[in-house]
Each structure stands twice: as structure tokens, then as C-alpha cells.
Computed example of a mutant assay.
Amino acid sequence: MKTTAQILRDYRGPALFSFGFRPFFLFAALWAAVTIPLWLLSFLGIGEISATIFTRDWHVHEMLFGYTAAVIVGYMTVAGVNWTGHYPVAGRSIVLLVMLWAVGRLAMLAYPVLGSIAALIDALFLIVFASALWREQLAASSWRNVAPCIVVSLLAIANIGFHITMIVPDIALAPERMAIGLIIFLIALIGGRLVPSFTRNWMAQHKIKPEPASYGRFDTAVLGITGAGIALWVVWPLAAVTGVLLIIAGAGLFIRLLRWRGWIVINDGMVAVLHLGYFWCALGLAMLGASILWPAHLAGSAAIHALAVGAIGMMTLAVMTRTSRSHTGRERRADRPTLAIYGLAMAAATTRVLAPFAMPIYPQLLVLSALSWSLAFAIFALVYGPMLARAWKRKV
């Protein structure tokens, strides 16, 4: 059996498909830029076709299992080597995985016609990748970093559950909550490693003390409460205890963020945006808890979009830009187009969260949020696409 290094050496195809992060980051960005305007056409009642295809379920599914799943897979094809010593998917296998993802997107567009066949096609992508992750994890005989394997596997199950809801409407929102919860927990977990690590490296380069707080019992406790709160939200979404735990989780994540001293790195956009993404994660969980306890004062949709557009949108863009530059041999620095990407993503999240609190201009804020979101990802595709499609460039 060939090693990962041999597989990569033998690969002779386009640079775009040499590593998983390259095609998945690019295609995920293009998909994110296109899907929101399509959904908005349906939401605003423009066009007969849009109302049939671009339903609310399609919108939710494609943001969670289309866009976000692609970014997660792209990142884990790189990060997996840190956990197991091998890339879970490399070389020609990347092409197969990308094809599974792309066919899944087409199947979802044809869902009104294909029905359960579309569901089967779409489900394959995460099932195959979860299997690849477990294969490498078992081969490594190390269980220290098994959490990502579990999360991706549960995400695959949530996707299957999402399709089952078409048959069993009573559980309609449970798989949706499960998917959002899993992704947010992944941000809390892996983001909790990346944010202080990159902040510490930046501070060391600039000889700034004290460093961000090291991982300790407090962090473990906060992650435990976050996991418990999210799990309760999935199965018991309206319970008061769920709301309380989510507020405590949000507060705990915010305290973690303060302990990492993010204000020090405000001049380095590529590090600062990681703190912003984690901030949205903390704020979103606290808002979600508050919306359960005081629904008359805080709309649940505002909390969901603080998590979906704010935490997921900001953190995925932060990871995509940093990983793309780092793993294509470029300086890890946020240039003007990159800062524009971050600014537009922040505007998309802010306007979408504020929209339910400003009903007289609700449609206008939705349009502004959608335009900001699509522009952010269109700029990413335009600026980072050539980097991702070309061979490695030596750092200068």
C-alpha cells in the first residue's frame, strides 16, 4: 500500500486537485456566493422556478451540508495529517471526493424531480469522507484527536436525518439543529486551539508579553458545558435548562476569548478575524439561550443567524484565507482584498442579525446582508482562486 508521500509524488494532475483544501475552498466559496441570491429570489417571491427549487429547506441544507461541509472537508484534508501523520485523502482521491460533492449539489437542485434518489446521492459525500477519516485514525492507533472523526460522522448522520424529515415531518428541525450544533461545537473546539496558538505565535514574533492563557481546567469545563447545552438544544430546544446552559456556554467562550488577549493583534487582520469568528460563536450561543428564555424579546432567527452567518461565516473565511496563503507558499498577511472579504462578512452577519429587530426595513436589511455575503465570497474566489489553482509558490 502506498504512503501518502508516494501518492502525492505520483500525482500528475492539475494543481487544483493536488490537496483537498484547494478545490473545496474554491468551489465552496463559489457555491456560497451563488446560493444566497438564489434563496433570496424565492424568499422575496420572484420567479416561479425559484419558489419550487430554492425552498427554505434547500437554503438551510446547502449552507450547512453544501458550503460548510465542503470547507470542513477541505480543512480536515490538511489538518488530518497533524492528528494521524497521514492525509486522509490525497492525490487522485481528491477528484473523486470533489465529484461526489458536486453531484450532490446538482442532485439537490433536482430534488423536486429525483426525491429519495437525490437524498442518496447527496448523503454519499460525508459518508465517504467520514470513512476516510476513521481509516486513518484507526491506522494511527491514537485516540487523542478522535473528536473531529466523531463530529464529521455525526454530521453525516444529521444530513441523512435532514432527508428523512421529508418523510417524517415531526422531526423536521432536529437534524437542522444537530448540524448547526455540531459545526458550532467544532468551532468552539478547534477554534479554541487555533485562535490562541496563532495569537501566541504573533505575540512571540513581536516580543509581547504576557502570552494568551494556556489551556486548562476552565477551558475543559467550558467545552463540556457548551457540548451539553448544544446537545440539550437538539433534543429539548424549548426547555429553560437548555437556555440557561447555552447562556453559560456563551459567557464561558467569551471569557476564553478575553483570556487570549485578542485586542493585541488588532493590526494583524488574519489573526484578528479568528477572534471575531470566535466572538460570534460566543454571542450566538448566548443569544440562542436568551431567545429560549425570553422569546418575546429576542427572535430565535437572530440567534441562529448570529451562529450561521457570524460564527460559521467568519470562522470559515478566516480559516480558508489563512490556510490558502500558508499552504501555497505565500505570506500569512491580510492584504486589502482579504480585509475587504472580512469586512463584508462582518457586515453580512451584523445586518442579518439586526434584521428581526428592525421590521420596517427587514427586506432591505436581508438584501444588504445577502449582497455583502455574496460579495465576500466572490472576492475570495477571484483573489484566492488563482492561488488555489496554481502550483506551490516559494515564500519570499
Rank of each mutant, 00 (worst) to 15 (best):
L30N: 00
L30S: 00
L30R: 01
W31R: 05
W31G: 08
A32L: 06
A32C: 03
A32D: 04
A32R: 02
A33G: 02
A33K: 03
A33W: 02
A33R: 01
V34N: 08
V34L: 12
V34I: 11
V34S: 08
V34Q: 08
I36C: 12
P37H: 04
L38D: 03
L38S: 02
W39N: 07
W39C: 07
W39K: 08
W39Q: 05
W39R: 05
L40M: 06
L41F: 05
L41M: 03
L41G: 03
L41H: 01
S42G: 03
S42E: 05
F43N: 06
G45S: 02
G45Q: 02
G45N: 03
I46S: 07
I46A: 10
I46G: 09
I46R: 07
I46F: 10
G47T: 05
G47L: 06
E48W: 14
I49H: 13
I49A: 13
S50Q: 11
A51S: 13
A51V: 14
A51P: 11
A51H: 13
A51G: 13
A51Q: 11
T52G: 15
I53H: 15
I53V: 15
F54D: 06
F54T: 09
F54M: 10
F54L: 12
F54A: 11
F54S: 07
F54R: 07
T55G: 14
T55R: 15
T55Y: 15
T55K: 15
T55S: 15
R56A: 15
R56H: 15
D57A: 10
W58V: 02
W58H: 01
W58A: 02
H59R: 05
H59L: 05
H59C: 06
H59I: 06
V60N: 08
V60C: 06
V60Y: 09
H61V: 11
E62M: 10
E62D: 09
E62G: 10
M63H: 12
M63R: 12
M63I: 14
L64F: 06
F65S: 09
F65V: 12
Y67D: 13
T68M: 13
T68N: 09
T68V: 10
T68I: 11
T68D: 07
A69F: 08
A69K: 07
A70M: 11
A70E: 08
A70C: 08
V71R: 06
I72Q: 01
I72D: 04
I72F: 03
I72A: 04
I72S: 05
V73C: 15
V73I: 14
V73P: 14
V73H: 11
G74M: 09
G74Q: 08
G74S: 08
Y75E: 05
Y75W: 07
M76N: 12
M76F: 13
M76I: 13
V78Y: 12
V78K: 12
A79D: 01
A79H: 02
G80R: 00
G80D: 00
V81Q: 05
N82F: 02
N82D: 04
N82Q: 01
W83A: 02
W83E: 01
T84A: 02
T84Y: 04
G85T: 00
G85D: 03
G85Y: 05
G85I: 03
G85M: 04
G85L: 04
H86M: 07
H86P: 06
H86W: 06
Y87A: 11
Y87W: 11
Y87C: 10
Y87T: 10
P88G: 00
V89P: 00
V89F: 00
A90V: 00
A90K: 00
A90R: 01
A90W: 03
G91D: 00
G91M: 01
G91H: 01
